[in-house]
Design a protein around this nucleic acid. Structure first.
Lengths: 285, 285
DNA sequence: ATGCCTTACGTTATACGTAATTATT
DNA sequence: AATAATTACGTATAACGTAAGGCAT
């Protein structure tokens, strides 16, 4: 039986030109390589080399054999990579969401329900979420609506509502009881945390003339919220997970876009193994 | 390093369903196969099986791996076959001729000039000879003309001339001195030996109404020539190699088509190694 | 009881490295 | 002298088979 080590040896010889150099590269002795090639010739029942007393080189058969050997070694490499990738996919649950909140709860929940699984989650825009679910990049995605696809399972869950947060001295703070429309804030400079996904598009849509001071570091963001007069935003969910700043006033927003209902979605074929996760999701209200 | 035996083992397991049956088919012990698969998993760093206490079956990774393994094993098989075929080609000289005569001389000549080489020769029609020369099926072909191809080397050699052979009592026997045209024989039933290649098309062309009694067995053919009144044919070359029947009259033929000049042709790239053969060919006259 | 898989253990076979040999530059 | 390939030989590793153990049908 021809073995892959022999094909590697052959390829190495072709690459280095002499047995001694190839042997050194392969970290084996020169005689070992010499014998390996003799055995390969024996097994293929074909001479692969032209031999002189202290010279050896590939003949036509050998050159042809090297080409095949390279292709074969590559396809073995491919096999390893693909099988490993498949395995990695099979032992990770990847959740993609249009907004951050679902990841806060889902991470711990998935870890508990599927011990040993690697859980990953990320914020992504909606088209990429749908594409990623289809391609296997995500097993679960969270959208603000039901995509109504017969291949997909969709479960509506809890809602998230956006609030404006202000220092008590801010002119709009008096609207805390009545609520206000985001458009009233258009043109103001506001503080935003960077990875808020879908919320960002709401802000841009309803406050097209505002300047957004986007903070990538949460500590810096919190510091600025505490020490400046700048308006910022929180949601019922962010308050639940990170608490409310006591020295800030929460102003409800009256635009319907500022409330979204989370729709958790997976492939129908994947639902059986994810059933436990879907069943513990918060209900419709 | 993953080895091909392991891939074979994996494929065998998939084919037979259990380790024991696969091991039996592979002519190894069951524990050996068990270990072989464990090692494969180790090397791919991926579980390939779902194991229960006394049951084992491929998981998703394993099924994917089997598909790859099958392809790889096939390509190794391909490699062996192709390299062996290349080797065989490199150690055979195959001569194709449009008529039999060149093969009578060329066989022995090539054997002498290229000891150790396998010599094969066959009669074939002209389009297939040209195609075969191009594809490597033939290294030398013999045509009745120069194909005038810049890729090919062509050397004109000796001529072969067709004669009518008759029993002395045959009406046409008196034409032995003057010669005759083949057309005069048209309509007569004549004896032909089967593998005469290009000559056959000459007969068909010039004697479209004749019936040809084609003999595939040379002994039968000779017997019929000796015991019947039927006209038949010989050439200067067939007489040289097989002798002339004493009790037959040779009538020269006056059609120009009944003499052809052999053109020995090879690829220019092949000429160097075939030089010795071409140099010993009979000259232009 | 039978079939199937795994682990343990002793053995064998195969592949290795070192050393020696021969040849070439 | 230095480089390169092969052959010879003793060794070590790795793969094997047998035997034993556990589990399921």
């Amino acid at each position: 039986m021809v073995e892959l080590t022999q094909l590697q040896h052959l390829a190495a010889f072709q690459k280095h030109g002499t047995l001694s150099q190839a042997a050194e590269a392969l970290h084996i002795s020169q005689p070992a390589l010499s014998r390996s090639m003799q055995k390969l010739e024996e097994e293929l029942q074909v001479p692969l080399f032209e031999r002189q007393k202290n010279k050896i080189r590939l003949n036509h058969n050998g050159q042809l054999a090297v080409e095949h050997a390279r292709r074969i070694l590559e396809s073995v490499q491919d096999m390893a990579e693909q099988v490993q990738a498949a395995d990695r996919r099979s032992r990770t649950i990847s959740l993609g969401s249009c907004v951050p909140a679902p990841t806060w709860a889902a991470g711990p929940a998935l870890s508990n329900l599927y011990p040993g699984m690697t859980i990953s989650s990320e914020i992504q825009d909606i088209p990429k979420l749908l594409e990623g679910l289809r391609s296997g990049l995500y097993q679960i995605i969270v959208l603000p609506y039901d995509p109504e696809d017969s291949e997909l399972y969709c479960q509506a869950a809890n809602r998230e509502t956006l609030y404006l947060t202000l220092p008590p001295s801010h002119p709009f703070a008096k609207k805390a009881d009545t609520g206000m429309y985001l458009e009233e804030l258009d043109g103001e400079t506001v503080l935003l945390y960077s990875t808020i996904g879908f919320w960002h598009s709401i802000h841009v849509k309803l406050m097209p003339h505002s300047r957004f001071l986007i903070q990538h570091d949460r500590a810096t963001f919190t510091e600025l919220v505490n020490t400046t007069m700048l308006p910022s935003f929180m949601t019922n969910e962010s308050i639940r997970y990170f608490g409310k700043k006591n020295d800030r006033v929460l102003v409800p927003l009256l635009n319907p876009e500022t409330t979204i209902r989370f729709h958790y979605i997976c492939k129908k074929s994947d639902y059986p193994r994810l059933k436990a996760f879907f069943e513990q999701l918060p209900g419709k209200e």
